[in-house]
Structures are given as C-alpha cells and as structure tokens.
Nucleic acid binder design. Structure first.
Length: 273
DNA sequence: AGTGCGACCCGAACGC
DNA sequence: TGCGTTCGGGTCGCAC
C-alpha cells in the first residue's frame, strides 16, 4: 500500500517519463475515481494540458499542468502503467490518459479506492484536499512546540493522531506502529499526555522511518523499467507491524495486536508502557 | 470543535 | 475441497 515513501518514488519515476509530454485527452472508465470536478468537466478541462512537472504533497501525487494541478491519491492499491492504444484494457484499469507521445498512461486500482482532483492553479489552496494538510516530515516548522500545541486539544490515542494528515502528512497505519515502537510510546497514550521528549522523538523517528523507506524505494525502483512494483520491499524490515506472532526485537517479549481507532495496531507491552 | 463511525471496494485470509 | 464471512487500508462526510 502506497504511503508517502512509495508516492515519492512513483513521483520521481513518473517525472522521468512524463515531463514535457501533453495529455491529449482522458478516458474515464470508472467514474468514482474522479472526485472533482464532475467526470465531464474533468475530461473536458484536462485536454491538451502539458505535464510540466511532477510533485508530491503528503500522499498526493501532483501533476503540474498548464492551468491545473491534477491531484492523484493512490490510496491502497493505485498504480500507473505506460501502455499503447492497442494494448488490451485490463479489468482494473479505470482512467486512461492519451499522451502526445503516442503512449497511454493508465491508472489501475483493484480496489477502486483511489481519487483524482483536477483543480485550477489559483484555487489550489481554496478547493480540494491540499488545503487541509499539515506539515511535511522534513518541514523546518515541524517542532516539538508545533506538535504539543496540536496535541493538547486531543484526547484521542497518539496512534490515531499520528494518522491525522492535518498535523504531519504521510504517516500511514504501518509506519505509525513503527514510529511509536522506536519512540517507546504506547499507542493508546492520549495525545494530550505526550511530553516534550516524546514529541521530539516522534519528529526524529518519523523522519528516520519515512526517510529510510524512501531510500529503499529509491534503490529498488532502478531495477524496474516501469513505475509499478515498488511496494512491499520495505515491509521486510518492519519491526512490529504485523508481527503479532513474533517477538519484540529489543526485549524478546511477545508483540501484541490490538485495535486503536478501528485500526490494527501492533506494539510491545514491555517497551511501550 | 472534537470525536466516532459507516461508506467506499474487493482480494486475501480465515472459519467451517 | 468448497463455500461463506471477515478483514484491512486512507479519507470523507455525517451524527453526536
């Protein structure tokens, strides 16, 4: 499932192949992928827009077009492929962009969970999901003071608050467990009870966990000729998430599984008091 | 305003 | 073995 590191990797590989190419038109096969505007306007407005650059904000992939930003959220299983017109359209291919290079960029998503937004550049901070987002993990404004200020109003478990994209962007369910394990914080601890030391650790290990995953994604992608297939490899190095039949890598106690805010949550009861 | 939860999806994993 | 059921993942929108 793509989290921030995977999106960063996909962005870089898409940039190599898309920069300077024009979207001739778009064919939308499954309407619900298009979140804004309606499908007709989406298809109309995206015609003949040049892809000038590729960017990322949180887990959103951003196509920097002439007059619009195309935001694409891959959710769990969204992927992009390059194909040609005559290639058979597969079951899970939902949006097809015809490019002026004679190629097609196809969006594939088995769960149909992904979303796309086409937003006028001047409205990018007024309309759509970017306006709600918090700080990037490497933003210099991400300080313990910033976090404590956000956390003090929240009685929710810290695990749930780490997933809140309005505070820090890019942390998903898996990385949240890893970050809390490295911080030695119990996932059920209320956000308003987080100490300054905790907050500093959260910042440190968020950067470390996401940064390492980007490095791994970056090294993996070179062995692939297309933009898919980068997911999964970092998961071989997970410390606690999904290890409920395993032992804590630090103290050897059993890893326990519970639910926090409706999400599967793994932690060490001994290390994370 | 903060919180909780269902809806959106469907393949994989699970239970019988 | 084959069936039906449950689960999970991120985000939004609605109800409290």
């Amino acid at each position: 499932m793509p989290e921030l590191p995977e999106v960063e990797t996909v962005k870089e590989s898409l940039k190599l192949r898309l920069k300077g190419k024009k979207i001739v038109d778009a064919k939308i096969i499954y309407d619900n992928i298009i979140a804004y505007p309606d499908v007709e306007n989406f298809a109309l407005k995206i015609k003949n827009q040049m892809i000038n650059d590729m960017k990322r904000r949180g887990k959103f992939l951003i196509f920097d077009l002439d007059d619009f930003y195309l935001l694409s959220h891959l959710r769990m299983e969204g992927k992009y492929f390059f194909k040609f017109k005559d290639d058979k359209i597969l079951k899970h291919e939902h949006v097809i962009f015809n490019l002026d290079s004679n190629e097609q960029l196809r969006y594939m998503d088995t769960r149909k969970f992904g979303k796309m937004y086409l937003i006028e550049k001047e409205n990018i901070l007024n309309i759509g999901p970017l306006k709600e987002l918090g700080l990037e993990p490497w933003d210099e404004n991400l300080t313990s003071g910033y976090l404590l200020n956000k956390y003090k109003k929240k009685r929710l478990p810290i695990k749930s608050v780490l997933l809140d994209q309005g505070i820090i962007v890019g942390i998903g369910n898996i990385y949240a467990d890893e970050i809390l394990f490295l911080c030695k914080i119990n996932p059920l601890k209320r956000a308003c009870d987080i100490t300054e030391k905790d907050a500093k650790n959260i910042i440190k290990y968020t950067k470390e966990v996401l940064g390492e995953a980007i490095k791994k994604g970056g090294t993996t992608i070179r062995t692939y000729s297309s933009v898919d297939g980068v997911h999964g490899l970092f998961q071989e190095e997970l410390l606690v998430h999904g290890k409920d039949k395993g032992k804590c890598p630090k103290c050897g106690e059993n890893i326990v599984k519970t639910r926090v805010g409706g999400r599967g949550t793994y932690y060490c009861e001994n290390c994370q008091k």
